[in-house]
Amino acid sequence: KFAPASWKIEHDYIINYGDEAGAVKLVTEKIKNTHNVKGIIACNNGSTNATVEAVMAAGRKDIAVTGFDLGKKTLLGLEDKNYSIAVAVQNQYKMGYEAVMAAAAAAKDGSKPAQKLVNTGIRMADKNNYKK
């Protein structure tokens, strides 16, 4: 809703099958062959790292990257204030804790969790707040 009306949202998917090095190559090719790309959404840590690496290697400061988690390549991208990167950082400890507690209760007496959905906390991090 914030993009200019003239922008076309292209639903193009790059599947890397968990191969981060392969993902860098795939994103690099996509950037090379799609000159007017303005943003890329990466759906997991490996894909986010690969996308940031490819965007930075291409020097494409005009491409916004949105992804998940805070890997080493993503951190490098956030530290370079010339790139537009934002990631959803998940509370992995709380995710694991809540899952183990629910499984332990079910194993003990077959009980179901009191809450079907648990908010384990997600924070958006970008170049302005990633150190907090």
Rank of each mutant, 00 (worst) to 15 (best):
Gln115Ser: 11
Lys30Met: 12
Val89Gly: 05
Thr28His: 11
Leu26Ile: 00
Leu70Cys: 03
Val27Glu: 09
Ala86Thr: 12
Asn91Asp: 15
Leu117Ile: 04
Ser111Gly: 04
Thr74Glu: 08
Asn119Arg: 01
Gly96Gln: 05
Ser111Glu: 11
Leu78Asp: 03
Lys112Glu: 04
Ala105Gly: 00
Ala58Gly: 15
Gln115Glu: 13
Val100Glu: 02
Ser111Pro: 03
Lys30Val: 00
Ala105Arg: 02
Tyr83His: 09
Arg60Val: 01
Lys38Met: 06
Cys43Ala: 13
Gly59Asp: 13
Ala88Ser: 15
Lys81Gln: 08
Val27His: 12
Ala54Tyr: 05
Thr66Ile: 14
His35Phe: 03
Tyr93Met: 01
Leu117Asp: 14
Tyr93Trp: 14
Lys72Val: 10
Met95Val: 10
Ile63Glu: 10
Ala107Lys: 04
Lys108Cys: 00
Lys25Gly: 05
Ala21Cys: 03
Val89Ser: 13
Lys30Trp: 14
Val27Ala: 13
Gly46Trp: 06
Thr120Lys: 00
Leu117His: 11
Ala50Asp: 06
Leu76Lys: 13
Thr28Gly: 12
Glu98Ala: 05
Asp62Ala: 04
Ile85Lys: 02
Ala104Val: 01
Gly59Arg: 10
Leu75Ala: 14
Asp80Gly: 12
Asp109Met: 02
Lys94Tyr: 14
Lys81Leu: 08
Ala57Arg: 15
Glu20Gln: 14
Leu117Trp: 07
Lys94Val: 06
Glu20Ser: 13
Val100Tyr: 01
Tyr93Asn: 03
Ala102Thr: 00
Asn82Glu: 15
Ile31Leu: 15
Ala99Thr: 12
Glu29Asp: 15
Ala50Thr: 12
His35Gly: 11
Ala58Cys: 07
Val52Cys: 14
Ile63Val: 15
Asn82Met: 01
Thr28Val: 02
Gly67Ser: 09
Gly77His: 04
Thr34Arg: 12
Gln92Thr: 08
Gly77Trp: 03
Ala103Val: 00
Gly71Asp: 12
Val89Gln: 14
Ala50Arg: 11
Thr48Ala: 04
Asn82Arg: 09
Asn36His: 03
